[in-house]
Computed example of a mutant assay.
Amino acid sequence: MAAMSTPQILMIEDDARLAQMVSEYLTKSGFGVAHAADGQTGLEQLQQHAPDLVILDLMLPDIDGLEVCRRIRSLPGALAKVSILMLTAKGDPMDRIIGLEIGADDYLPKPFEPRELLARIRAVLRRRGDNTSEAAAATMMRFGTLEIDRNARTVTVGGALADLTSYQFDLLVAMAERAGRVLTRDQIMEAVRGRELEAFDRSIDVHMGRIRAAIEADAKNPKRILTVRGVGYVFAKQQD
């Protein structure tokens, strides 16, 4: 990944005017910004330069943003874990749900205020920084055959590596650190991203479904992350 002193952002967006405006704004805010006008070019730049975060538009001239997201998540090694902030059409929750399901870390509907984009970028990068801090990286958490390594940011089940995005890893850690406590969706989001941003209500449900698919023997009959109807979720202390 890029040097911590200047976080690097790759914007994959075919609207040249919007891309220029965002690039200038983020550059003034202390980021390095590269731009790709289509999905294939964006994928090539991603593999060449390994940015810290990708701003990904859904509507691209060659490959749609959802497919670009899928391809990023299938790349080898650390490239697959890059944070993705997806730009979606305003008022279309299905695009947001699908984007989260296939691995986007956050979303922002168009049109948007540059300040909100900046706040969301900082929140995503802060989550990464928080989890490389001394407090977050101190220990390995074990729950039966489930092991969470906060230092390496990996999750294994029975020795097999679980496929989680950076945001889903953070959600799992937040739940595991509060094992046995019933948490509302708002409490879970607060634990991961703070109060400064409003979040899409159902995004937590989408991510929990993805986490279950990665760590449960039977995602339809979960034993690790349980739903408490009308309240939220609880990470079970006793497992396996």
Rank of each mutant, 00 (worst) to 15 (best):
D95M: 05
Q40K: 13
A123C: 14
R71G: 01
D163H: 05
M175T: 02
E196W: 11
Q20I: 01
F235N: 08
A137Y: 10
A199P: 02
E198W: 10
A36G: 04
L85D: 12
A104E: 00
K220R: 15
R185M: 12
L161M: 12
A236M: 11
L46F: 01
G194Y: 05
S83F: 09
K237N: 15
I102K: 09
I148T: 03
L100P: 07
K28M: 12
L46C: 01
P114R: 03
A34W: 02
A136C: 12
E113T: 04
P61H: 02
R195W: 12
M175E: 09
G99K: 00
L125V: 13
Y167F: 13
Q48G: 05
H49R: 11
D205Q: 14
G209E: 06
L100M: 13
V173F: 08
V206A: 13
D38V: 06
G39T: 05
L197G: 00
D205E: 14
I102L: 07
R229C: 01
R126K: 14
R212C: 03
I98Q: 12
D201N: 14
I97S: 10
R115P: 03
Y25L: 06
Y167E: 13
M208R: 14
E24Q: 10
R71M: 14
I72K: 02
V173P: 05
R71C: 08
L79Q: 01
P76R: 05
L43K: 06
A16Y: 05
A160S: 13
V54H: 04
P7W: 09
V157H: 08
A36T: 01
K81H: 05
L125F: 13
D57S: 02
Q168L: 00
R193Q: 15
H35W: 15
A104C: 12
L79H: 03
S203G: 14
R185K: 15
K81G: 02
L26P: 06
M175G: 09
Q238L: 14
D201I: 08
H49P: 01
L161N: 06
A219N: 02
S74P: 13
A50F: 10
R73A: 03
G180E: 09
E13F: 04
D218E: 09
D201Y: 14
L108N: 07
Q187L: 01
G159R: 09
L164P: 06
G144W: 12
I72F: 02
E134D: 14
V228H: 10
